[in-house]
């Protein structure tokens, strides 16, 4: 049984202007010690889906299931959720500058996370905070624990956030764009840190990003999201060597480091559809280079595609035209396998 399994998650916000269907049928599963990358552009529903399952989204209509360690998080009481948050499921967020409370000392904020779940004395919690800061590689942790967040650099704050998230050795870490706000060298350090903690503690990691380079580096498997739906699910190698969905292919062709081998950097024309309009066909159809009439009549489900087991794609071509990429000179096909995991840096969607 997987540690965490999300099935057909749907999240709708009722607003004065109409319903916003932020997530429309998200499914994935995750084992202990595994890293799942969730990729997609802004507004594709990556953050909403994870924040919904941990109960941090208010005022949304939610359906589906999200079973974590035998507990359906979508049915659990607020008390149960509070017990899980910080204890079994931890989170780090995109902007470490605003994610730490400006008025409390960093050490105290970490100690607070420990004290929320453990009966432990103030001084023991403090000592634990210092230890955690040392673990994540902050120099002079005793002194730093007594400082306020504004004295920390961006990378140090994200380290402090990670220290806080790992305070109770959670079973799962949700990292919501943990490196987006950091410069490239610090990005690599933070990713290394998450990777180290994953191998040391067998923590399952959900890594939300719009950076294909980051995914290639750390994820075991990937969900590509588009307009609130997963459009392709695959293990990382298979996704990069045999990208099936035209959106994924477009994403890969728009990465500078990768597109250097092509003549030019390709952008995907058009913009994602409005989430307020009910989708009747493939949401990517208006921007898809392979669009046919059938694309607009029904929303394609996730179906097996490509040669790797478990590789799914929500494209009508997966039914009859597996491997069609070979003929249209897709970027994915031309990537020598094995190199894919060496991409680093700032490839952004």
């Amino acid at each position: 049984m997987p540690l965490f399994e999300v099935q057909d998650l749907r999240v709708t916000f009722h607003t004065d202007d109409g319903d916003v269907r932020a997530v429309q049928g998200m499914s994935f599963s995750l084992d202990r010690g595994e890293t799942l990358g969730i990729v997609g552009e802004s507004g594709s529903g990556k953050s909403v889906s994870t924040q919904t399952v941990v109960g941090l989204v208010n005022g949304a209509e939610v359906s589906g299931s999200a079973v974590f360690d035998g507990v359906d998080l979508l049915q659990a009481s607020e008390k149960t959720m509070r017990g899980l948050r910080g204890e079994s499921i931890s989170m780090i967020f995109q902007d470490p500058l605003t994610s730490l409370h400006p008025l409390y000392k960093v050490g105290d904020q970490i100690a607070e996370a420990v004290k929320a779940h453990r009966k432990i004395s103030r001084s023991d919690a403090r000592a634990r905070a210092v230890q955690l800061l040392r673990d994540v590689g902050i120099p002079n942790p005793e002194g730093r624990a007594r400082e306020y967040p504004h004295k920390f650099s961006g990378g140090m704050r994200q380290r402090a956030m990670i220290a806080m998230a790992l305070a109770l050795e959670p079973k799962m870490l949700i990292a919501d764009e943990p490196t987006t706000a950091l410069d490239v060298t610090v990005q690599a350090q933070i990713l290394d840190l998450i990777e180290r903690l994953r191998t040391e503690h067998q923590t399952a990691v959900i890594l939300i990003t719009h950076d294909m380079g980051v995914v290639a580096e750390v994820a075991d498997k990937v969900v590509v999201m588009y307009a609130g739906r997963p459009v392709e699910v695959a293990d990382t190698r298979s996704l990069f060597t045999e990208p099936h969905h035209p959106y994924t292919q477009g994403l890969l062709r728009s990465i500078p480091a990768f597109a250097a081998r092509l003549d030019k950097l390709e952008a995907i024309p058009g913009a994602p559809p409005s989430l307020m309009v009910e989708q009747t066909g493939c949401p990517f159809a208006p921007r898809c280079p392979h669009v046919v009439t059938a694309c607009t009549t029904s929303v394609p489900p996730l179906e097996p595609a490509g040669s790797a087991p478990g590789h799914l794609s929500a494209c009508i071509r997966s039914r009859h035209a597996v491997g069609v990429d070979a003929t249209d000179g897709s970027a994915g096909q031309s990537a020598p396998s094995g190199e894919s995991t060496s991409w680093k840096g700032s490839a952004s969607v």
């Binding site: 941990v54 941090l56 607020e78 509070r82 017990g83 899980l84 948050r85 910080g86 204890e87 931890s90 989170m91 967020f93 902007d95 605003t98 994610s99 730490l100 409370h101 400006p102 008025l103 607070e112 996370a113 929320a116 779940h117 956030m161 806080m164």
Partner: peptide, 26 residues
């Protein structure tokens, strides 16, 4: 609406602590 309030909730702090210690105080 600040990110640090989300952090406080993500830590699993009780509602009152989030509201008063993290919210009202700020």
């Amino acid at each position: 609406g600040e990110d640090y309030i989300r952090t406080a909730r993500a830590k699993g702090l009780p509602r009152r602590t989030v509201l008063f210690k993290h919210g009202v105080r700020a």
